[in-house]
């Protein structure tokens, strides 16, 4: 069973890369070699890696192009932040964050399922456009909503805070475009890495299971999959929902890493969704490990080049081109295989 062994080894290398990254960063942190700027980038880097894994499940494994995945991240972020804000004084940090994860993931999965029902009836470009629309709708609706809680229960409004008509003891949870402020900042790099490892575990294991093969069969040829007795719609829904759920987990990390959560275009608009798609494409469509590496490099790079001012985006685009060539050019693939073979032979 050589291919099975190779698969297990491949997966272990993926986990190993993440753990090695974690250890290096922790050592740098402990020895004080990490600037406070860089320190602040560690959690975002990890949740972008997580959502890249989620999007790769949708684009690479299921084969459906979604450019609204930041919408699911947004839902996970807000659902969990509402919970954390409500229970900020009543629950201990650890338990609150744990439940926040469950809520964020569950609500994002629910929305993934509901949005999947109409969206997955479409194909190709149409599907991409509609996911983009849903991503924007989610962001804009959250921006318009006011929500408050008082002794009488939950109040909603689409106008302003006064319109909520709350008792004097009421607490505003979502303040329209001002979002949610004062959520406890309980996420940290260690928790983020654990969530990344769990997401990888789920996606990589899924790929090597009966359901994962069915999902890839739908991607490769849905007509043949149907003729082989595969429930095409069911498996599409399954992959899309799991993908949304993982994006929701990234959202929980997002909202628990900041004190003031707003649904801005910078983080939840289509630009952000396309940036994540760039991570997935350059890391290799269907290559989960590549998504993690590409997300880490491409997220950190522009931030670390801030000192170079105007040259920053120039270098960033050159790196994009180099990564593209490295991953997809036939000559580069040949060269990579040669290097790997030499390395393997030396070890043998």
């Amino acid at each position: 069973m050589t291919s099975k062994k190779k698969r297990i080894k491949d997966n272990l290398i993926t986990y190993g890369i993440v753990i090695a990254l974690y250890i290096v960063m922790e050592i740098l942190l402990k020895t004080g070699n990490l600037s406070s700027h860089l320190k602040g980038l560690l959690v975002p880097m990890t949740y972008y890696a997580i959502i890249a894994v989620a999007l790769n499940l949708c684009v690479g494994i299921l084969g459906e192009l979604s450019i609204g995945h930041c919408g699911f991240m947004c839902i996970g972020a807000f659902a969990s932040a509402i919970f954390s804000k409500l229970t900020a004084d009543t629950l201990p940090d650890g338990i609150r964050l744990f439940i926040a994860f469950i809520i964020g993931i569950a609500v994002a999965a629910l929305f993934g399922f509901l949005i999947g029902i109409p969206v997955l009836r479409l194909k190709g470009d149409y599907l991409a456009i509609v996911t983009l629309a849903f991503g924007e709708i989610i962001k804009n609706v959250i921006n318009a909503v006011y929500m408050g809680v008082d002794s009488k229960g939950v109040h909603f409004s689409l106008n302003n805070v006064m319109d909520l008509g709350m008792e004097p003891d009421g607490q505003v949870i979502i303040n329209g475009a001002m979002g949610i402020t004062g959520t406890p900042r309980t996420a940290n790099f260690t928790i983020a890495i654990v969530v990344l490892l769990l997401s990888l575990f789920v996606v990589l294991n899924l790929m090597n299971s009966r359901d994962g093969r069915a999902i890839m069969a739908v991607r490769d040829n849905s007509i043949a999959a149907e003729a082989s007795g595969i429930n095409v719609t069911g498996y599409k829904m399954m992959a899309f929902t799991i993908s949304a759920a993982i994006a929701g987990a990234a959202g929980v990390l997002f909202s628990h890493n900041i004190t003031s959560l707003t649904a801005t275009s910078q983080y939840f608009g289509y630009n952000a969704s396309i940036m994540i798609l760039v991570y997935v494409v350059l890391g290799g469509i269907g290559n989960i490990r590549g998504s993690v590496i590409a997300a880490a490099i491409l997220y950190l790079l522009p931030e670390m080049l801030r000192g170079l001012n105007t040259y920053r985006m120039l270098i960033y685009s050159i790196v994009l081109i180099v990564m593209m060539l490295f991953n997809w050019a036939p000559a580069a693939i040949e060269w990579r295989e040669k290097v790997v073979n030499r390395f393997v032979k030396r070890n043998a």
Binding site: N205, D211, R213, M216, G229
Partner: peptide
């Protein structure tokens, strides 16, 4: 299923005959 291995193509055909739950698979 052109991006899948030969054995995985056949195993897709076996999907409905050898069942286990999604949770067990993940």
């Amino acid at each position: 299923f052109h991006q899948m291995s030969v054995i995985d193509n056949v195993k897709v055909g076996l999907t409905e005959r050898f069942k286990y739950s999604g949770l067990e698979g993940v």
